[in-house]
């Protein structure tokens, strides 16, 4: 009974119908980032009956997430549960038929190249442009549509990138000042998230059900607080000599095997990721740490967290490390070398 009725309202929606529903149930969607945007889009897609969803995120649940990241609970904060794990647990309760592939990892070139060829569409729910440019190039390489989405405060923006049709993110970024995007220091209200996701998920449903003529084709932006809605026709920004979508050189996929660091926007945190060839042994590391007297030590199956002076250090299974309490890369590296590597 449940199965017969489950998607009836969506099937009644004419552009989808029985046939569209079947497409949705046979599809595989990759969601990169399971923060506010990723929580919301994954819930909508699971409820819509998508067959397989891969979630990719590097982080664990924190208290300040609860105001808008709808899949998470206070218990997840307490246990420092990785976002992909907390999300999977909740999503599986909503729809046990959807297969959820939870990947606790930083979305780098290697990780994306391993999954993007298998998926029908990619949703960008990340919080930084470095990752978006990698997504852009991987999706161009494997000819996969992806949907840019971002938000701060009451402002949101989204654009659907179709390989060989629309301009790609690299084309667009070449025509705007490159001083980096607005940082997350102005906060956000949760309706902003929902409106971006409403656009992103609708575009996904159009793509999955073959309704490509209904795609927006425009750069959509809005400010909910200021009651503004903008739609720009950006086809003219397609660059005939774009290294990503025309020349297919994919400049954003150049892999350097050295240590990678990133200051996480608005969070007073530095992320450190070891190079490709370095083997990290989590259990040895754990044994070693236990011989040291550390404050507020916590471990769960996915990570270890402890404090040292004014810093909190979180080390994941693969050795990826977050140093909270600093924006200074050198200072963070010093702590990393002392405890992790």
């Amino acid at each position: 009974m449940l199965v017969d009725n489950r998607y009836s309202r969506q099937i009644l929606f004419d552009p989808i119908g029985e046939k569209g529903q079947e497409c949705i149930q046979n599809s595989h969607v990759l969601i990169i980032g399971v923060g506010a945007l990723g929580s919301s889009s994954s819930e909508m897609l699971v409820r819509a009956g998508v067959g397989t969803i891969t979630l990719m995120d590097r982080d664990y649940v924190e208290e300040s997430n609860l105001q808008r990241q709808q899949l998470f609970t206070e218990a997840d904060v307490e246990n420092k549960t990785p976002k992909v794990i907390a999300a999977k647990n909740r999503l599986q309760k909503i729809n046990s038929q959807t297969k959820i592939d939870a990947q606790l990892t930083d979305a780098g070139v290697e990780e994306l190249e391993a999954i993007v060829p298998d998926v029908d569409v990619v949703i960008d729910a990340t919080d930084n442009f470095d990752t978006r440019l990698i997504i852009n190039d991987v999706c161009q390489k494997y000819h996969t549509p992806w949907i840019y989405g971002a938000c701060v405060a009451s402002y949101g923006v989204t654009f659907t990138v179709l390989p060989d049709e629309t301009p790609c993110l690299q084309c667009i970024m070449d025509h705007i000042p490159s001083d980096g995007a607005t940082c997350d220091t102005v906060g956000i209200i949760s309706p902003t998230v929902q409106k971006v996701v409403a656009h992103q998920v609708t575009e996904v449903l159009k793509l999955l059900t073959g309704n490509t003529e209904a795609l927006s084709g425009k750069l959509v932006a809005f400010d909910l607080w200021k009651n503004q809605q903008m739609e720009l026709e950006v086809a003219s920004l397609k660059d005939d000599s774009c290294p990503s979508c025309v020349k297919k050189i994919y400049p954003n996929l150049d892999y350097q095997s050295q240590l990678k660091t990133a200051v996480l926007c608005g969070r007073n945190t530095v992320q450190i990721r070891a190079g490709k060839h370095r083997n990290f042994h989590f259990d040895d590391f754990k044994m070693h740490l236990k011989q040291t007297n550390l404050i507020n030590y916590l471990e769960n199956p996915y990570l270890i967290s402890f404090e040292i002076n004014e810093f909190r250090v979180v080390v994941f299974h693969d050795g990826r490390t977050l140093i909270h309490g600093t924006k200074n890369i050198q200072e963070a590296k010093k702590i990393y070398y002392r405890f992790v590597g």
Binding site: G156, V157, I176
Partner: peptide
């Protein structure tokens, strides 16, 4: 004029 910003948050 329509002015659209590129923002990073998500």
């Amino acid at each position: 004029f329509e002015i659209v910003h590129f923002v990073g948050g998500g």
